[in-house]
Each structure stands twice: as C-alpha cells, then as structure tokens.
Amino acid sequence: MKEIMAIIRQSMMKETLAALSEIGIDSVTVHSVNGRGRQGGNIMESVDPEMKANVESVSKIYKYPTPSSMAGLSKLTKPVFWIPKNLLTIVVSEVPVKKVIETIANVNRSGRFGDGKVFTLPINDAVRIRTGETGDAAII
C-alpha cells in the first residue's frame, strides 16, 4: 500500500481527476494549500491596467536571488511568496504506483515552473470505518 501526494496547479484539478478516474482511481482527498518551490515564489511585474488579459506572459521567474530577498528592491515588481496549489492524496494498492504518477505528470506537465511535485510514501495499514475492514480490502 502506498500513499501518493501530488501538489498540482489549482487550474488543473478537473483534468487530473478525469484522467485519474480513467485508470480506475476515484477516491482522492484534496487539500487547498499554499506553496512554493526552489524559486521561493514568483515575481509579478506590475502591469499596465489595460494589459490585464496578458498578466501571465509578463510574470517573470528569477532563479536567484529568490523573490523574497528581492522584495522591495523595485517598485515595478511585486513578490508573490505563496502560490495557491491543490494537494491530492491518494492511497493505492492494486493500481501500480508508477502508472498513477505518470498519469498525473502527463496531464499536469506544461514545462513551466510550478507544475508541481509528486511524492510517494509507505502506508502501513488502512481501515474502512463503515465496515471495519483492514488492509487492502479497505481501499479496493
């Protein structure tokens, strides 16, 4: 039994859940979290109000120094320390872990920073509260 924790973009939830249910995974727990990666967040350049539709294209990510260390250096940039993400936790026993990870990755890969991470953790036991079943029977 393995636990898969995937941190993904909030905008990709629908696609991810659809892809997961195609490979037979319907039980998912979703947490709404804030996070950031090695870049320490993001820097959003302040935008001309008339360019609102184009915000994505003018947001820049600097590798080093981190956005938080650059906070307040320039009036034109504003740091975004925490980026809203969704954390999915899935406990699997019969579907292969690798297949689940590949499905999540293929759906979420855009090639830009912030696509997310997937972690796998060992799980010792599971109990279905309604019936009291334990082990694999609880999650199948």
Partner: peptide
C-alpha cells in the same frame, strides 16, 4: 519516510 519524489515539469525522478 518518502520513497520517491518526482518533478512534473522535467519528469525527473521516475
């Protein structure tokens, strides 16, 4: 314990 970590953007670690 974490058994594996995987970066979605690059596909690293699978």
């Amino acid at each position: 314990e974490v058994e594996d970590a995987y970066t979605i953007r690059t596909g690293e670690g699978l």
